[in-house]
Amino acid sequence: MPLSHPTLDRLPIRHLGPEDLLACADLSENRGWPREEHKWGLLLAAGVGHGIDDPSRKGLLAACVVTSYGPGLAAIGMVLVAERYARQGVGRRLMRHVLAEAGDTPLSLYATSNGQPLYEELGFTEIGRSEMLRGHFTAAEPAPGRTVRPATAEDLQDVLRLDHEIFGADRTHLITRLPAFADHLRVAEQDGEITGFAGLWPNMDTHVVGPVIARDPGTAQALIASLAAATDRPLRTDVDTGHTELLTWLKANGLEHIATNAVMLRSRAALPGDGNRRFAPLTVAAG
Rank of each mutant, 00 (worst) to 15 (best):
L42C: 01
G17I: 09
G254T: 09
L178P: 02
P217K: 01
P211N: 10
A46Q: 08
R96S: 02
T176Q: 06
I194K: 02
G199D: 07
L178E: 04
N261I: 03
T206W: 10
T219V: 13
P144L: 00
S108Y: 00
A86Q: 15
A182K: 11
D183E: 15
E120L: 02
L185T: 07
P202G: 09
F167H: 03
V239G: 13
L118V: 08
H257Q: 09
L109I: 06
M78C: 12
G115R: 01
A74M: 07
P71G: 07
L160C: 03
G59F: 10
L118C: 09
A82S: 15
Y85M: 04
M132S: 13
A102M: 01
L247M: 09
G17F: 12
L250I: 07
E256I: 09
L160V: 08
R236D: 07
V263A: 14
A100F: 06
P144F: 04
L107F: 09
H173I: 00
L109S: 11
L271M: 13
I166G: 04
Q190I: 00
D158V: 02
N30K: 09
T7Y: 03
Q190V: 12
H5L: 14
R186W: 08
N114W: 00
E121R: 15
D104Q: 12
T176K: 05
L250H: 10
A269T: 10
D205Y: 10
G192P: 07
P117S: 07
A230E: 11
R277Q: 15
E165S: 15
L246K: 03
W33A: 05
H207T: 03
E154C: 03
T138S: 15
H173S: 11
P281Y: 05
L122D: 01
C24K: 03
V187K: 01
L43M: 15
L250D: 03
H207F: 07
W33F: 13
W201L: 09
R277G: 02
E126K: 15
N253F: 02
G199Y: 01
A23S: 14
G199M: 08
A74E: 07
Q116A: 15
T219M: 09
G115I: 01
A214R: 02
R57A: 15
T138Y: 05
R87G: 12
V208E: 06
G17D: 14
L235H: 05
P12D: 05
A259V: 14
R57K: 14
W40Y: 13
A75S: 10
G51S: 05
P12G: 09
W249V: 01
T152W: 00
D104C: 10
H173W: 03
R233P: 06
S108W: 01
R93K: 12
L271P: 12
E121H: 14
T283C: 11
R277A: 14
